[in-house]
Design a protein around this nucleic acid. Structure first.
Length: 420
DNA sequence: TCTGGGGTCCTAGGACCC
DNA sequence: TCTGGGGTCCTAGGACCC
């Protein structure tokens, strides 16, 4: 049996942890630059605030209903996530961390000796006690069915107490008939649209389709999903691998048309992806640079600059990567355009151990030592070392007007209690 | 004024080989 | 009139996830 454990309204729940007076009140968390809503408490959902809602459009509604608005605090969420996962590891050694707020677990053979419902309730209780985070759990024979079970646990929380087990054929069919096709894990907007056009409206109907149609129109991914929903386990745990590409992309708070401003941003992005490469002990062999105009402003001239470049040798040096990025920028930059977004993505990632000696020279060995020192200092002092192209005056600081404290990761931001 | 960011996997079709 | 056949590798783009 598989379990799918999912934290309820994770970011919103994290924000509530150290502000218990927010329990029962609407809470939303915004994306970078306080752009749009990316997490909502149940109360916020009930007010009709949709996922992805632009914050500025909902300002009045927020004020009217006294919605508690937060900027995203990934340092806090990352640490709380770690605590939740560590707690869960006590219940099964086989765990696949699927995202910041979700994991799959294997409970092979458990059902012979334990009642999974009891086990699930115990897990929700202890996670809540240890971390303060509410979770829901779905158990079933396959990963896709565990996802369905989890959705039921969440939807009928009062009845299920946050745990639902699909362990009979009858329950499986009932669950699949209840699940709308667009809510199935792995079926996105495009596939849902095509399926509905063929009068397929539920997960159950999907499992009744011909394999050949599914294979042809939804690739092997769709076929595996279908079998998984039928109870034939076809989607296994994914092993933990180093990242195959690493990105740093941002929207700007305001539009920029000067190349110097964009160049500065890209230097920062280069430093970020290079640092992440070094952290997983990898090199990249190609990289992508893009700059986009503002597509929300059709009245302005649009331009999407994009280029992919192969490096001369595998590298993770910020200096080398930024050199390539800056050259790339000059190739794709078009004068007179107002840019709103840019990014650097490194690809063709290879392990640093497998470094291939190139015929015509490779990384400047001085870079390797220099980067080691930079990483060490930044780790010790908190990202204080900057590169020459970065703006040291920090005038680019992200818009984060409602940022909460890093309660669990910084001594300077610990919760203080007034005992008077 | 204002609209997120970071990933994975699969496939068709082009380029190339003998 | 008439112009082979069988492969591999790579990549852009499309689908999906949170």
């Amino acid at each position: 049996m598989y379990a799918l454990v999912d934290c309820n309204n994770f970011y919103a729940s994290c924000e509530r942890l150290f502000k218990p007076h927010l329990n029962g009140k609407p809470v939303v968390v915004l994306s970078n630059n306080d752009g749009c809503v990316i997490a909502r408490s149940n109360e916020a959902k009930a007010l009709g605030i949709p996922m992805g809602a632009p914050a500025f459009e909902y300002k009045e509604l927020f004020a009217l209903h006294q919605v508690n608005v937060f900027s995203s605090n990934y340092e806090l969420y990352g640490n709380i996530s770690y605590r939740v996962m560590e707690t869960l590891k006590n219940y099964s050694p086989e765990i696949e961390i699927y995202s910041i707020d979700e994991c799959f677990m294997k409970f092979n053979g458990f059902d012979k000796y334990f009642d999974l419902m009891t086990q699930g309730l115990e897990m929700t209780r202890v996670v809540k006690r240890n971390t303060g985070i509410p979770i829901c759990i779905g158990f079933a024979e396959t990963k896709a069915l565990a996802k369905v079970a989890n959705k039921i646990a969440k939807k009928f929380q009062e009845r299920t107490k946050g745990v639902y087990v699909i362990d009979t054929e009858e329950k499986r069919i009932k669950a699949l008939k209840w699940t709308k096709i667009e809510d199935v894990w792995g079926i996105g907007r495009q596939h849902a649209k095509r399926l509905r056009a063929l009068n397929i409206f539920t997960a159950f109907q999907f499992t009744q389709m011909h394999d050949s149609w599914v294979r042809k129109n939804m690739t092997v991914v769709g076929l595996k999903l279908k079998h998984d929903l039928m109870g034939i386990s076809s989607i296994d745990f994914e092993e933990v691998k180093p990242k195959q590409n690493i990105a740093c992309t941002r929207s700007f708070d305001v539009m920029h048309n000067k190349i110097e401003n964009i160049s500065e941003r890209l230097t920062v992005f280069s430093a970020s992806v290079s640092q992440k490469l070094r952290k997983q002990n990898s090199h990249c062999n190609s990289l992508i640079v893009f700059i986009d105009s503002n597509y929300h402003r059709p009245d302005l001239e649009q331009h999407r600059g994009f280029i992919k470049i192969k490096t001369n040798y595998p590298t993770n040096s910020t200096l080398e990567i930024n050199r390539i990025v800056q050259n790339a920028l000059r190739m794709i930059y078009k004068k007179g355009i107002y840019y709103k977004r840019a990014g650097v993505i490194v690809e063709d990632i290879t392990p640093a151990e497998n470094y291939q000696i190139k015929l015509f020279g490779g990384e400047n060995p001085k870079h390797i030592d220099l980067m080691k020192v930079v990483d060490k200092l930044n780790k010790k002092m908190g990202d204080k070392i900057k590169f020459g192209g970065e703006d040291l005056n920090k005038k680019w600081k992200m818009k984060q007007e409602q940022l909460s404290q890093c309660y669990t990761t910084r001594f300077s931001e610990l919760l203080t209690i007034d005992l008077k």
